[in-house]
């Protein structure tokens, strides 16, 4: 009924014909009837997001897919993405990038040994920020001991949320468009961040 009201409010001013309002409304009802039946049938279905899967698979319950530019940018987007991945992982979101420590030491200090090197213009980050969980951008580190599984578009169906790391160049990229389409197909919510 709300949809009908919206349609009516939107379409009525654009009508050029001199139809009687009642006739017009009846036609509109006929038009939206298929939509109503779709809505009813969808309500009878189980949740179609991957949440059904996720409930049985704790690995996917907090899986966040990151869509970002793999092509050459004016600056190194990968560093910013790695920084974002680190924060997400530190806050118990899964990005598919597994950072394993050779020393098998779970202390925060040891985490500093495998942090990605951040190339930043300024060091205005406060390392005491709670969400950083020990992240210190001033430390120069290597990623050579990381064990990483690179996520691809095929993983989008398993994620709970997709974060699109937009840059002006990536916004125009076919890769970005494809991943947004997949996200739409699998009905995944999207968060957009600007890098």
């Amino acid at each position: 009924h709300e949809s009908l009201t919206i349609l009516h409010a939107y379409l009525r001013p654009q009508m050029l014909s001199s139809e009687e309002p009642e006739e017009y409304v009846q036609k509109l009802k006929q038009t939206v009837r298929p939509l109503a039946s779709i809505a009813i049938s969808n309500n009878n279905l189980k949740p179609k997001l991957s949440s059904t899967l996720d409930e049985n698979d704790s690995g996917n319950a907090r899986f966040v897919y990151l869509s970002y530019s793999r092509t050459t940018e004016k600056w190194n987007v990968i560093h910013a993405v790695e920084r974002l991945i680190f924060v997400l992982e530190a806050n118990h979101f899964h990005t598919g990038v597994q950072m394993k420590n050779i020393n098998n030491n779970s202390s925060r200090e040891s985490d500093l040994h495998h942090l990605p090197k951040i190339q930043s213009k300024s060091s205005s980050i406060n390392p005491n920020d709670s969400y950083l969980h020990g992240f210190n951008p001033s430390i120069t580190t290597t990623t050579s001991i990381d064990t990483r599984r690179i996520m691809g578009p095929g993983d989008i169906r398993h994620c709970r949320v997709m974060i699109v790391c937009l840059t002006p160049k990536y916004f125009l990229n076919e890769h970005c468009l494809n991943e947004l389409r997949l996200c739409e197909i699998y009905q995944k919510p999207i968060l957009v961040v600007l890098l």
Binding site: L88, K121, S124, I125, L191, V193, L194
Partner: peptide, 26 residues
């Protein structure tokens, strides 16, 4: 749309991003 284009914005806005994620994941 969350702006993370500078270190300062990153520090300020990442907590917002995390909160939104938590909300979306319920």
């Amino acid at each position: 749309c969350i702006d993370l284009t500078t270190n300062e914005l990153f520090s300020r806005n990442v907590p917002i991003l995390l909160r939104r994620l938590e909300t979306m994941l319920g």
